[in-house]
Simulated assay, not measured.
Amino acid sequence: MSKEQKGKRNQKETREDMVGLIHNLERDEDLKFNRRSFLKSAVGATVTLGVATLPFSVLALQDKEKDDNRKEIAKLADIPKDSAINFQYPTESEPAILVHTKDGELKAYNNKCTHLQCPVFYEKEESVLLCPCHRGFFSVDNGHPLAGPPQRELPLIDIQVENGVVYAVGRQIRHG
């Protein structure tokens, strides 16, 4: 190192030296496109999107499922014991069956055999659900297959009785 360079090392910096140090800070493109600005923009966009979707999240979390899936089936007085009626649930294209057993219990299932989707009928004499296509039998109590080719149980439809009216309120697709 020369004497001149050593001498400058201990000298007080001049304005010209400082201009060289801050030259990059005065450039507009560096101020617009630096890492800090990018991160601020990314966090701001994330917070804005989160706040914008908050009302939709609150609506989705509200418990409206009970009213949406609830459908009137029939009046309890119109369904004698040891009989069954057909209805559509949860949509108009999906058949279902409601059985009023000998013991006075109400059981509802999808009205399609789990083997080949044939309709299922209530057999009073044996108190079972019968699929006539391939002689499949299901238990009225729980929808499990008793005999024939079906291997899976019928999907159960949850029902409620209020003020003498039977309502379908949900469906359970069970496996096992």
Rank of each mutant, 00 (worst) to 15 (best):
E4Q: 01
L61Y: 14
R171K: 15
K124E: 13
P132V: 03
R27E: 08
K66M: 08
L76G: 05
K112G: 00
A108R: 13
D17Q: 11
Y109T: 12
L146C: 01
A77P: 01
Q117W: 15
K112C: 03
Y109E: 10
S93M: 00
N142I: 02
N10K: 14
L25W: 11
I157L: 05
K124H: 06
A96Y: 12
A52V: 02
F121A: 11
N110I: 07
E126F: 11
H100C: 09
G148L: 08
V19L: 14
K6C: 07
R15V: 04
V140R: 06
K81Q: 04
R27S: 03
D28S: 03
A60K: 15
E29N: 13
S83N: 05
H175I: 13
L59T: 05
P119F: 00
D82T: 02
G50K: 04
V128S: 08
P155C: 04
P132K: 00
A45E: 13
G20P: 00
L54I: 00
L154F: 03
H100K: 15
T114Q: 01
D30C: 06
D68H: 11
S57P: 08
P80D: 04
I79M: 02
Q62F: 04
G148P: 04
G7Y: 10
F137Y: 08
V165T: 14
P95V: 00
K32R: 10
L25F: 10
P90I: 02
V161C: 13
K112V: 00
I22A: 08
E92D: 14
V19N: 13
V99D: 12
L156Q: 11
I79K: 07
L130I: 02
F87L: 03
G148Q: 06
T91D: 15
T53L: 02
K102F: 04
V166Q: 12
D17L: 11
Q5L: 12
V120W: 07
K6P: 07
D158R: 14
P90N: 08
L25R: 08
V140Q: 03
N110S: 15
V58I: 12
L59M: 11
E126I: 06
P145K: 05
R36T: 09
F38S: 05
A96D: 00
K12R: 10
I22V: 15
V51C: 11
V58Y: 06
K40E: 08
P95L: 01
L154A: 04
R135K: 11
L31I: 13
L76N: 05
P132G: 03
R174H: 12
V58F: 07
D68L: 15
K12Y: 06
R174Q: 11
K102R: 10
E94S: 07
G176I: 06
E94Q: 05
K124N: 06
C133Y: 00
I173F: 15
L61F: 14
C118I: 00
N69G: 03
P132W: 02
N110L: 13
S37K: 15
G50E: 07
N34A: 07
E26N: 14
V166F: 11
K8H: 01
V169S: 07
K66D: 15
E162C: 06
